[in-house]
Design a protein around this nucleic acid. Structure first.
Lengths: 301, 301
DNA sequence: CATGGCGTTGCTTGAAATGCACCACCTGTC
DNA sequence: GACAGGTGGTGCATTTCAAGCAACGCCATG
């Protein structure tokens, strides 16, 4: 929207930390950007960026302004969504932040189901860890988040929280796959591979092993979940994944999962959240509601 | 603010109901206004106004847009207020809607007290009846309301509600003035004059008289509270006013008031309210808090 | 001490918004 | 049924405002 160009500019400057890079990002010359910013500051009566030779930084007033700017831009897309909604053809855009565990199965299923009903709704999925997700909510880069948290009070509004335990992931013909459910010590009869520290499931695993005598460091760590899958499929190694991100226990793929006995795993939670007090677009709120229902059914209290 | 000119225009068109009169109000030519509107509608992808030879009217999409427009403009003044606030010199603007009863004593006292502390805060006081007050809150023309309500669930957020009974108003040397408090029937020994139907106190009076045998129609009705006062001061007539709008019982002016026994008057309420979910400017929220405290002290539960 | 990044500014150019005059239309009135 | 007087809409000339270019001064870094 035309009348928001100054706001987009201010947002870009705040994000990049420099007028010149913001100009490049907006396909304009630095002088144009500089002038718009200057005009806005003059109109406001206050500087909103502190200038330094290395770039610019928001000052106290700027922090208030950028909040207003981002909220206004978010409100604008919400307005468009609501208008489109009342003319029947539901279009819109939903921007999500989620943990990696939601990527392989859950979110694709939900999004494609939603898009089957509303093909004109577009999605943006960002994989974020818990802390980054909170920040993204705060500055309006995502409408909602679906993230795994192993504790701590989130500073966003939690729409739904469902408990999540771990599942062991292994090849379909793996000896462990004969059991319906596993104790953690059973898995350590085989080589254990795991995601790097920092991923939600890994933290949960560490805490599960805290006082266990059979605990050993994983024989392999990686930041690639693709690698974990491939490795598990080809060997007798075992890895772990949060329930919702694990392959279907009864699936027919190369790898399957078995739940770990709840006694062995301290409770982690999958949180569906949005920014406090934020009004979502029609599309976004419908989708969030969709997920909420789905999760509430899948994990009845 | 420059980037809001289109919004101001749209607001003006919506209020006046015609492009030409909006243009006049904004000191522009109709063609300029027409073009801006057209440009905005094109950008949005939807018409906002239904055109007719007699003028224009908001359509369904327009209703959503005007809501957004007004909210955005209100948010902008709030932003300015917050920025001004952190630089120390508190300035700002507070727009209030109130019942007539608040005009003679209560509000002037509170506002002047507030302005003594913060001289750069400006005020706008609109006398509105209960229903109009709700509308004014809704379309952001007032920040908060302080109105008398004789029942019904208000659709705005009630910050504080205090009970209000009636007071009889009479000349200082009136025989009734010898009592500390009055029963309603006592007043009807004298000519009763009253405000027109529609004013808060009048409704309360009507309901108080509902099943009373001594009830008589007022010997005079007027829409001028100034007239009521003058008449009462000059004759032995009696009139009624909501407590908070009545002269000080111990005052030294030409007229005094005496409370009516609570048994005779069904409960009315004075409501302090704001729009649901709306964030007020620093100045406005401080002032509202000021009033809330004052009322809570004056009418302890 | 040079170099390369940064913010800032004077001047010129181009585009976009405005104002003017005018059209087409409907509505009520004489 | 002609006629004002109001409405929204538009082509064209003009003005105003924003963008681009090039250059300056600054400071941190190597």
């Amino acid at each position: 929207m035309k009348h928001l160009t100054t706001f987009r500019l201010i947002d870009a400057i705040a994000r990049t930390g420099s007028i010149r890079s913001a100009a490049e990002q907006m396909a304009q010359t630095p002088s144009a950007v500089q002038r718009r910013l200057q005009a806005y500051e003059e109109e406001l009566g206050y500087q909103i960026f502190d200038r330094s030779p290395g770039g610019v930084r928001l000052n106290a007033a700027g922090e208030l302004v950028i909040q207003h700017v981002r909220e206004t831009m978010a409100e604008t897309v919400r307005l468009r969504s609501r208008i489109a909604d009342l003319s029947g053809n539901r279009r819109g855009h939903v921007s999500l932040g989620c943990s990696q565990a939601l990527v392989p199965y859950f979110l694709p299923a939900r999004i494609s189901a939603y898009q089957a009903e509303f093909p004109r709704v577009t999605f943006d999925v960002q994989v974020l860890e818990h802390r980054a997700a909170a920040l993204a909510l705060e500055d309006f880069t995502v409408d909602a988040v679906l993230v795994f948290s192993d504790g701590g009070v989130p500073e966003y509004e939690v729409i739904l929280a469902v408990p999540q335990t771990l599942a062991a992931v292994m090849a379909r013909d793996h000896p462990l796959a004969r059991h319906d459910s596993l104790r953690l010590w059973q898995c350590y009869d085989y080589p254990v591979i795991a995601a790097n520290r920092g991923f939600g499931g890994r933290t949960l695993l560490e805490r599960s092993l805290y006082d266990k005598t059979f605990a050993r460091a994983p024989v392999l760590e990686t930041n690639s979940f693709e690698y974990l899958k491939a490795h598990v499929a080809a060997t007798d190694a075992v890895t772990f994944q949060i329930q919702i991100g694990a392959p279907d226990p009864g699936g027919t793929g190369e790898i399957v999962s078995r739940p770990i006995d709840a006694r062995d795993v301290p409770g982690g939670q999958l949180l569906l959240g949005k920014k406090h007090g934020r009004n979502l677009s029609v599309a976004a709120s419908r989708f969030v509601e969709d997920i909420r229902k789905q999760l509430a059914e899948a994990y009845p209290d």
